[in-house]
Design a protein around this nucleic acid. Structure first.
Lengths: 225, 225
DNA sequence: ACCTGAACACCGTTCAAGT
DNA sequence: ACCTGAACACCGTTCAAGT
């Protein structure tokens, strides 16, 4: 009666658990139990937990709408793609955390990068600027995803951040105290939109890195960061 | 012979473990063992693991240099503060992940926000713009910290990201293929500095949110993000 | 009242023993 | 050859039983 095990089945069940119960709620043991087998059996199809997480992330990112809608300017399309990306991340709590790990280089992630790169080049950015900008935009989107799926919601006065800011003593943190209202204001939507504009505007105005189009000189091995 | 337990001692040992072995390497049980007691004993001083993590983060953030050096422009000082912040995050693997959680609102974090807010207002930003910009800058610094302490190092050709980008088939990802070199180029230092410039430039040029200084109208309760 | 050993309910991963 | 039950080495947290 039970379907035969397969990698696909495992990933499907794992993503369902992630979506339902978050990152901690997904485990190899629970996936195995749901598939009516022992935890050891999964290792025939998946290297380890990290590999499974990578597969789950890739599967989920397939839902990102990369079209950006039609007949709009490239800036709006960039915003639309990132918006879709963040929405997908938020649809499964814990997905954003997976996206912020070295795992996040599956084919679906590459497809998003490819799309954004195209839009930015359409916008007239040099290849180098576009490349760095894509990195920055994706990092921002992912970070917003992590923050928000962590329940960070400053406009809720009961949230830890709101409590901390409102409660910050005016003597020690005068500016924070004065700006508390502004720090807490604005829904995620508005701030996200503003931030993307800031990033794109900044990229357009910032001088491209020095070695545009040049092969990088063998980096001197200094303590890398 | 063994020192009496205290919250301070517990946090010190926990931070030491975090610094030595990363987020997974720090545990209540190991802290207890190092302090020669049972795991249950810690609960007299700390609510739970999350509370301990918050205390550890706050302790670590005390090392952030908030002075920004002397006699430099506000932009350079902003950059210096964020640079110090990221360095502190990277000094203890796993610390950045803690910083990207709702936990990150201890007094030391507030001190960093307070400082940045002051610098941006000195730079002539409106209070609202400054408030949102501080949020954006800290989010970026934290995200860079998470990424890099996750071992994300694109300039290492052996890294997963480098492998994925170099190996991306040119037919499916033409732009990515063409831009692979640029995507992988540049050490963390250079990209970080560029990104901060992008953010500040963008903030300076982007129109402040509409309701500057106004109390936010009661947000219509839509599915918040 | 304070402290803690032992137990509970979980993990990921390995491996010997089965088919 | 493939599959897996049981074991191993861990977790955070609770609680009854000690002092």
């Amino acid at each position: 009666m039970k379907q035969p095990l397969s990698r696909d089945l495992i990933v499907t069940e794992a993503l369902a658990q992630l979506t339902r119960e978050g990152l901690e709620g997904m485990s190899l043991r629970k996936v195995a139990a749901a598939l009516e087998t022992g935890p050891a059996s999964l290792y025939a199809y998946v290297d380890d937990l990290q590999a499974l997480q990578a597969l789950v992330l890739d599967r989920a990112l397939a839902a990102v709408d990369v079209s950006g809608g039609r007949r709009r300017g490239w800036r709006e399309r960039v915003k639309a793609v990132l918006d879709s990306y963040v929405r997908v991340l938020l649809a499964s709590p814990g997905l954003a955390q997976l996206a912020m790990s070295p795992i996040a280089v599956g084919p679906r992630a590459l497809r998003i990068l490819e799309t954004l790169l195209g839009l930015l080049e359409e916008g007239g950015l040099t290849q180098t600027s576009a490349a760095w900008a894509v990195d920055l935009l994706m990092l921002y989107g992912t970070a917003i995803g992590v923050e928000q799926s962590n329940g960070h919601n400053p406009s809720d006065p009961e949230s830890p951040s709101a409590r901390a800011l409102s409660g910050a003593p005016a003597e020690e943190y005068p500016r924070l105290h004065a700006a508390a209202e502004e720090l807490l204001a604005g829904d995620g939507e508005a701030r996200f939109s503003w931030a993307i504009d800031v990033l794109i505007t900044g990229v357009l105005q910032s001088p491209a890195p020095k070695w545009v189009g040049k092969r990088v000189v063998k980096a001197k091995p200094k303590p890398s960061r």
